[in-house]
């Protein structure tokens, strides 16, 4: 199938893009790499009136440092992160997650911000960055705001981003030397959409513990140390898996034996990996 008709604009600045978004005039989508939007356009699952291409804007393609964090432009590609072409405040976590996204040809064009804004539950960044405590920087007509990635998605393909906002950058906090990380993705085949994702971060210097379970039927499930009885500077030998199971039940897996099983395993293996690092 071929895409339905739409118009295309490439604004010269982020401000122009934001203003154009606010003009109304039908169904407008932002193009930020298009590696997931492209197939949906081709299948006519999305039929926008206008596509605004923000991939080449200087505001979305660079990076900067601020206190305790790196800000990565929304249209930095997965491949740039994989190749270490942007500073990595996580001690190697970002490149490893990036390298596991789909295929190299997709990573060459797909972007970190595009992936987050698209909010496919099976996407890596949504879960990984939520676990890392990252925030997105959203630019609107009158103001800029920051939202934790853990609170960004509200369901499948849906986010808290307002219609006239653009995701400009991702703020990724610098991890301490003692941070421990575990990431486990279960997929049927390499490069395929994930069946289940577990992401666990234990950073004793910043906060105790965060576990994110992704590739759910909606927003990722984010559990902090308090929910799992993890506190202090050491990762306990046993995590309360039953509590994770109850959280999964409450997150839509009560009647899905398979889904619950594989998500529990992904969560446990992510924690085990964090413990081993």
């Amino acid at each position: 199938m071929k895409a339905a008709r739409f118009a295309y604009e490439r604004p010269k600045s982020l401000r122009q893009a934001v203003e154009r978004l606010g003009d109304g005039g039908g169904f407008v989508k932002l193009l930020a790499g298009g590696q997931t939007l492209g197939p949906m356009l081709n299948l006519r699952l999305v039929q926008p009136d206008l596509l605004i291409d923000v991939t080449k804007l200087s505001e979305t393609t660079g990076w900067s440092e601020e206190a305790g964090a790196i800000l990565i432009g929304a249209c930095v590609t997965h491949a740039m992160i994989e190749d270490g072409k942007v500073p990595d405040p996580t001690g190697g976590i970002l490149p490893r997650v990036a390298a596991g996204i789909a295929y190299r040809a997709v990573r060459n064009r797909g972007t970190i911000g595009g992936s987050l804004a698209h909010a496919d539950p099976a996407a890596d960044w949504l879960s990984a960055l939520a676990a890392l405590g990252a925030e997105v920087v959203l630019v609107g007509r009158s103001a800029e705001r920051r939202v934790p990635v853990a609170e960004l998605s509200t369901g499948v393909f849906s986010t808290v981003i307002a219609e006239d906002e653009v995701l400009r950058a991702v703020r990724i906090p610098r991890l301490s030397r003692h941070a421990r990380w575990g990431y486990y993705k279960f997929w049927r085949k390499t490069g395929d959409f994930a069946e289940a994702i577990g992401a666990a971060l234990h950073d004793p210097e910043r906060e105790a513990f965060r576990l994110v379970i992704g590739a759910t039927n909606g927003a990722p499930l984010v559990l902090d140390g308090a929910a799992l009885g993890v506190s202090g500077s050491a990762l306990p030998e046993r995590i309360d898996m039953a509590a994770i199971g109850r959280a999964l039940d409450a997150h839509g897996f009560a009647d899905d034996d398979y889904g619950k099983a594989v998500h529990l395993v992904a969560a446990r293996r992510a924690i085990e990996r964090a413990r081993r690092t």
């Binding site: 197939p39 085949k189 395929d192």
Partner: peptide, 27 residues
Amino acid sequence: YEEMPFDEAGQPQASTLADYLLPGATE
């Protein structure tokens, strides 16, 4: 990997190669 399921209404449940899994070089 490969399966073309239909639901009770006869609707095919795999309409892309993301649903109909063909083995790749790692499989």
